[in-house]
Write a protein that binds this DNA or RNA. Structure first.
Length: 422
RNA sequence: GUGGGCGUAGCUCAGCUGGUGGUAGCCCCGGAUUGUGGCUCCGGAGGUCGUGGGUUCAAGUCCCAUCGCUCACCCCA
């Protein structure tokens, strides 16, 4: 049996990769419009980094990380998310000193050992953005508006939900109120009983109809925000209103990582099977300091590229086929030699050129040219070599003209080739 | 970690209560057109029926095991 890829690890093959390139190019373009700079960070980090940032008791850290020992015995982990490595790099390279506000993005693979399903893989890819050095609410609004714009320019629709998780000074109040409330319910489902211990907030997300009926009266985090957090949240909403970005407030929204403070948000869709989140993020004002850096606030989000690609299949218009400038159809060994030389010369001039090296029939080669979406085909056989000119065929119009070998051809450009047919 | 569905050609899939693997579609090659593509027609190539065992005169089909894929739960991008 041939060796196959690991479970949850996927190849992105020609025919699919064009979608990925489109996603990446679109995202990069928009990110740059908003003043973001790319940063490339390693895929392997010390395990400690993720335990400290994501949280020891989160599912990611407890059971989903690809962690193993290096040859010297130190514990390494393949990054399960992008924020921690980027913040580590930000601190390590002194980027806070280089610029008061850093807007950084990174694109690449993340790894989580989960059971794969639609829209979820063990190696998946994220576009991950971090804005460091400011806690102005408008930055939050701007970041969400940017995320929404990326989806919009990809031709995708998703809804934005926002919430505030408060800060270390107001969240404990809410946690206590929530736990008190849960304590009054006597028929929680098994999942919720477990969640009550591990992450009380998460019960509010329960899919059981019975539980949901109870939670309708649950305390809302938004009623427990301290004045500073409440002000921040209303300023964020005002910012979104000013930019005319539609959103819904969801006080029950929960995030899976421990480091979030204040603003959190998700971009949701119903077109991804059981997965509904295409992108998500939030503010993490204590995290940089917690990782040993300066006490600067930050906010970020990530979008799942597999999920974007799935959505493009569901909602998108399809991508244009790549074109080929020229196919050279050569008949017979002498013509093939000449065509071989020509193909390289023309590629050196900037044209995309294809030819066949297998001595196939002209008919077959024309077929290949058609399949490859060639704009022009150059036909070259013994007769043409003798005359010193080849036949240039415009594939769309079927017009053909004779062109001198070594003359027009050597000076070809795309524009010239079109003009030759006037 | 738990549960459901599915493994037949490179891809998408037929194959009924066991009885010789499909003129199937796409793709590929050749021909119709001695040197001119996308359409059409004709011909051809391509298979350890996931793997191992069992039942049977006979297994793609039934049974067991195993591996893989997939969807869902948990959780998440």
């Amino acid at each position: 049996m041939a060796v196959k890829a690991l479970k949850g690890f996927k190849d992105i093959v020609p025919g699919e990769v064009e979608t990925w390139q489109f996603i990446e190019a679109t995202a990069r373009d928009i990110l740059h419009r908003f003043g973001c700079s790319e940063i490339k960070v390693p895929i392997l980090e010390k395990t400690k980094l993720f335990k400290r940032s994501i949280g020891e008791t989160t599912d990611i850290v407890e059971k989903e990380m690809y962690t193993f020992s290096d040859r010297n015995g130190s514990s390494l982990t393949m990054r399960p998310e992008g924020t921690a490595p980027v913040l580590r790099a930000y601190i390590e390279n002194g980027l806070h000193a280089a610029k008061p506000i850093q807007k950084l993005y990174t694109i690449g693979p993340m790894f989580r050992h989960e059971r794969p399903q639609k829209g979820r893989l063990r190696q998946f890819h994220q576009i991950s953005v971090e804005v460091l050095g400011t806690d102005l609410p408008r930055v939050d609004a701007e970041l969400m508006a940017m995320a929404a714009l990326i989806l919009q320019e990809l031709g995708l629709s998703a809804s934005l939900e926002i919430n505030s998780l408060g800060c270390p000074s107001c969240r404990p109040d809410f946690n206590k109120a929530l736990l008190d409330f849960i304590g009054t319910i006597d028929d929680l489902c098994d999942d919720c009983l477990r969640r009550r211990q591990t992450n009380p907030l998460r019960v509010l997300d329960c899919k059981s109809a019975n539980c949901q009926a109870h939670y309708r009266n649950a305390p809302s985090i938004l009623d427990h925000l301290c004045p500073a957090c409440a002000d921040h949240f209303s300023a964020v909403k005002k910012g979104l209103d000013l930019l005319a970005v539609p959103y819904a407030v969801n006080p029950f929204m929960v995030r899976g990582l421990d480091y979030y403070t204040r603003t959190t948000f998700e971009l949701l869709t119903t077109d991804l099977g059981a997965q509904s989140t295409v992108g998500a993020g939030g503010r993490y004002d204590g995290l940089v300091a917690q990782l040993g850096g300066p006490a600067v606030p930050g906010i970020g989000f990530a979008m799942g590229m597999e999920r974007l690609a799935l959505l493009l299949e569901e909602q998108g218009d399809g991508l244009p086929e790549p074109e080929l400038d020229l196919f050279i159809a050569a008949i017979g060994p002498p013509a093939q030699d000449e065509a071989f030389r020509m193909s390289h010369a023309l590629r050196s001039l900037g044209l995309s050129v294809a030819m066949d090296h297998q001595d196939r029939s002209l008919k077959n080669q024309m077929k290949q040219a058609g399949r490859a979406q060639a704009r022009f085909t150059l036909i070259l056989g013994d007769a043409e070599l003798e005359k010193g000119e080849a036949i240039l065929r415009n594939m769309a119009s079927h017009d053909q003209i004779a062109v001198a070998l070594g003359g027009e051809l050597s000076a070809w450009s795309l524009a010239l080739a079109d003009k030759l047919f006037d």
